[in-house]
Simulated scan of single mutants.
Amino acid sequence: MDQENNQENHLKRVLQLYPFDVGEVHLLESRSGRTTWEVSTDQGIKILKQAHMKPRRMLFIAGAHNDLVQKGIPITPIHKTKNGAICIGAEDHAYVLYDHIKGNEMIYYNKEQMKKVFDFAGKFHHASKGYVPAAESKTRSRLNKWHKLFRWKLQELEGHKMLAQTYPDEPFSVLFLEYADKMLERGRNALKELDEGPYEQWIKQSIEDKSYCQQDFTLARFTEVNSEPFMKELHSITYDLPSRDLRILLNKMMKKLSVWDTDFVIELLRSYDHSYPLTRDQYSVLWTDLKFPHLFCAIVHKYFLSQKRSWGDEKYIWALQNIIAVEDSKEQFLNELSEITEAIKEGERGEKAEQ
């Protein structure tokens, strides 16, 4: 009870820093180091988010959020305190307050919605250019770190292969070992491709642009307002290539579809390219990232580290089978970079010609 009272008093002190008359406060969610409350005020419903991160890191994210609002990106307005601060810091955690936006659910299986999300992603990456964070901000960058990430994942996959070989009759290990060498080879080839030039050139361009990516472009951050995607919050950002967001989103979608649908991917990337055209060299970097077996590494990592404690062996095996199906059906796509890039660009030119 004392802990609840302390939390309630702490929330009151935080909310008193904002220029609103505050009414009822309801806990919405508390997980993964983030807690959110719904706050009734004289100016409508607001969302208060507490994140377990250094305030200087939150300042980096909140500053970008506010910059996107000012540039006209459809994202919920972030509120400033009475003293003009865009976030509040308290030792190892920080707070932000923004509007509560009502809209319709967006789902990965709705093709029209997803094409609009990719169009949004292009506008988001374009708007990220030129962001200058406050001097006190703690920035984060993964530029020039792909080599290290790929090597680490390959080393871990090799370690898991050795471990699986000690359990030759275990169903998950049998299936994993059947595909491990193929995925290791693809991963090593992707690592070599990082040295071919386009990756380094894009890094230099990204540093000049002062652009960032979101890290985890997921529909959990979106709602649909007036038939268009609207971002409910900016969860995180880091300095990295836009292709990272595209790779994560494409892999996530195709995993849900249980197959790599090349025609659909072309439609999605056309929508993105219409808002934020990439060069053919930049698409080659995206292909390299898609070639690396991120999904395969992730499910194997989860299994051998028992990260999903509620999952039984059957669910792990189903998840691995699903990812293998996606990676197998992706093979032809990966070998048709030139043809698919042309299809993406021709789609854009065709649309322009009709206008």
Score class of each variant (00 low, 15 high):
residue 1 M to C: 13
residue 1 M to F: 08
residue 2 D to R: 09
residue 3 Q to R: 14
residue 10 H to Q: 06
residue 11 L to V: 01
residue 12 K to S: 08
residue 14 V to T: 04
residue 14 V to M: 02
residue 19 P to W: 01
residue 21 D to H: 06
residue 23 G to F: 10
residue 25 V to N: 04
residue 25 V to M: 01
residue 26 H to A: 08
residue 28 L to Y: 07
residue 28 L to T: 04
residue 33 G to D: 09
residue 48 L to E: 03
residue 49 K to F: 01
residue 51 A to R: 06
residue 53 M to E: 15
residue 53 M to T: 07
residue 54 K to G: 05
residue 60 F to L: 03
residue 62 A to P: 10
residue 64 A to I: 00
residue 73 I to L: 15
residue 75 I to K: 07
residue 75 I to Q: 02
residue 76 T to E: 13
residue 77 P to H: 04
residue 77 P to F: 00
residue 79 H to Q: 08
residue 82 K to N: 11
residue 84 G to M: 01
residue 85 A to C: 08
residue 86 I to N: 15
residue 88 I to L: 15
residue 89 G to Q: 04
residue 89 G to E: 01
residue 92 D to S: 08
residue 93 H to L: 07
residue 94 A to I: 00
residue 97 L to H: 05
residue 100 H to C: 14
residue 100 H to D: 12
residue 101 I to P: 13
residue 103 G to V: 00
residue 103 G to W: 04
residue 103 G to Y: 05
residue 104 N to C: 13
residue 105 E to M: 14
residue 108 Y to W: 11
residue 111 K to A: 11
residue 113 Q to G: 10
residue 115 K to S: 10
residue 117 V to W: 01
residue 117 V to F: 04
residue 117 V to Q: 09
residue 120 F to Y: 15
residue 120 F to E: 00
residue 121 A to I: 00
residue 122 G to Y: 00
residue 126 H to R: 11
residue 127 A to K: 10
residue 129 K to F: 03
residue 129 K to E: 14
residue 131 Y to C: 01
residue 132 V to H: 08
residue 134 A to P: 15
residue 136 E to G: 01
residue 138 K to S: 12
residue 140 R to Y: 10
residue 140 R to G: 02
residue 142 R to N: 09
residue 144 N to R: 05
residue 147 H to T: 09
residue 152 W to D: 15
residue 153 K to E: 15
residue 155 Q to H: 10
residue 156 E to G: 07
residue 159 G to C: 01
residue 164 A to G: 05
residue 171 P to Y: 05
residue 182 K to A: 14
residue 182 K to G: 04
residue 192 K to E: 13
residue 193 E to V: 02
residue 197 G to D: 05
residue 197 G to W: 06
residue 199 Y to H: 03
residue 202 W to G: 00
residue 204 K to M: 09
residue 210 K to Q: 15
residue 210 K to T: 02
residue 214 Q to G: 00
residue 219 L to T: 03
residue 221 R to F: 06
residue 221 R to K: 09
residue 223 T to P: 10
residue 223 T to D: 11
residue 224 E to T: 10
residue 226 N to G: 13
residue 227 S to P: 07
residue 228 E to H: 10
residue 232 K to L: 15
residue 234 L to C: 02
residue 236 S to Y: 12
residue 236 S to T: 12
residue 242 P to V: 00
residue 245 D to W: 00
residue 247 R to V: 00
residue 252 K to T: 12
residue 252 K to S: 14
residue 254 M to F: 03
residue 255 K to T: 15
residue 258 S to H: 12
residue 260 W to C: 03
residue 261 D to E: 08
residue 261 D to N: 12
residue 262 T to K: 05
residue 271 S to H: 14
residue 275 S to N: 15
residue 278 L to T: 00
residue 283 Y to C: 01
residue 292 F to R: 04
residue 299 I to R: 11
residue 303 Y to M: 08
residue 305 L to E: 11
residue 306 S to L: 09
residue 308 K to Y: 06
residue 311 W to L: 07
residue 315 K to R: 15
residue 316 Y to D: 13
residue 322 N to Y: 06
residue 323 I to Y: 06
residue 326 V to D: 13
residue 329 S to L: 04
residue 330 K to C: 10
residue 331 E to F: 08
residue 332 Q to N: 11
residue 332 Q to A: 11
residue 335 N to S: 11
residue 337 L to W: 02
residue 337 L to S: 10
residue 338 S to Q: 09
residue 338 S to I: 06
residue 339 E to D: 07
residue 339 E to M: 11
residue 340 I to D: 12
residue 343 A to Q: 15
residue 350 G to R: 11
residue 351 E to N: 12
residue 353 A to N: 12
residue 353 A to R: 14
